[in-house]
Design a protein around this nucleic acid. Sequence first.
DNA 1: TCTGTTGGATTGTTCAACAATCCAGCGATC
DNA 2: GATCGCTGGATTGTTGAACAATCCAACAGA
Lengths: 232, 232
Amino acid sequence: MASADQEINEPAGLNSARARVRMRVPSVAERVAEELRYQLAEGFLVPGAKLTEATIAEDLGVSRNTVREAFAELAGERLLLRQPNKGVFVATLEAGDIHDVYTVRRAIEVSSIRAGGSPERIAAVRAAVDEGKLAAAGKDNEGLGSANQHFHGAIVALAESNRLNTIMAQILAEMRLYFHKATLNAHFYSDWLTENEHICSALEAGELERAGDLLLAYLNRSEQQQTAIHGA
Amino acid sequence: MASADQEINEPAGLNSARARVRMRVPSVAERVAEELRYQLAEGFLVPGAKLTEATIAEDLGVSRNTVREAFAELAGERLLLRQPNKGVFVATLEAGDIHDVYTVRRAIEVSSIRAGGSPERIAAVRAAVDEGKLAAAGKDNEGLGSANQHFHGAIVALAESNRLNTIMAQILAEMRLYFHKATLNAHFYSDWLTENEHICSALEAGELERAGDLLLAYLNRSEQQQTAIHGA
DNA sequence: TCTGTTGGATTGTTCAACAATCCAGCGATC
DNA sequence: GATCGCTGGATTGTTGAACAATCCAACAGA
């Protein structure tokens, strides 16, 4: 059945990789990484916490070596920090990290929106805006947060670049880890809800320069706010 | 002796991580990754080549598990491609990859140069230009290539962002892998040697917008050239 | 020519072991 | 009383061996 599916889905024989990805069973190491990513995003694992290999291995019912592979992956994503011979720790916000993260965001988000995008991609941005409005109407703080992430992810997706998309995904994962629910109060959201609306409108109207300026201004302000809350 | 060094180098007690990095002995897995990175950059391992775990392990005199860790690291850097149950292969240039890479470069390089940088960072850009001239005078093709990489690395370094720097380093490693010596003929270099000079001059003069425009134009042209040589 | 099967090779994963390293606690010394 | 050095336990780094799962090429048969 697997092979039949494969033949049906790839008559051209070109995109075999894509077809295989769809039906592929994630390896154990990947599932461990996924589980840890989830726990990090959800706030189960707080910054600075130590992750002991043996403990994680036992908890998840896998071997230590497999846990190690997952650690290597997450360390590459800056979610975990490996300190040789001491252990791996949940990444913590060091001095300058906030500025650093926003520097990356300014580079790739502004560049993406200034180049515009296909109608479908623009529609995705609009969808994220609507998602935010809906969450706001339902006072769903959780939903508001992810809507905002979808919005900014959709902006980067305008560029249709796999590499930019994965970079942005990592940055967003970092932000979920650092700026967790506790720091995200309603006061925060009300600001950018209308802001996103404006940015999206400018994008739809083809006023790319203005959209870029608005986005840049938002990012600068957001950085200031976050810096004010957390340390420098 | 080690502890003495440590105390001398960190009177503030703040940057303990940095000090430790300097004296740290790389783990075996890291050295394996480093060796593979070298062989990739040097063209020993060509795109598409299969890397068998057992073979590499025996060649380097390490265990299979250690090789696996190194593979995970390099796969995260897009230098190797892991195909489950089939093996790891040296990354190959897929359709759209060239455009993808240049999209990232446009985003982070142009953004970095438009924001300017400290005099020291600007001096580093100038140094890379001079390095290129020197290599050109000595008809050192090898040196020309790395001088160009240093130039673009120095531009990104203007932003003083660790994250942008590592992103750029990965992109440059990819380019070394894909666009290897064979494709880099002298005709290529003569173009951007004067180009870099102009960009650097504009940067030094504080004409950031112009510097950004020049850099952008260069990147666009470079993408066209590379696309013409390799497939789409 | 196509289809199934089979066997070898390679990967994915586990387990157990040991060396290297770190760390906290505890005396010994001044 | 503070500092120094030591020691023991815990954790990481790395290895080697083992086995199941998967893939692939070659082969046999319809």
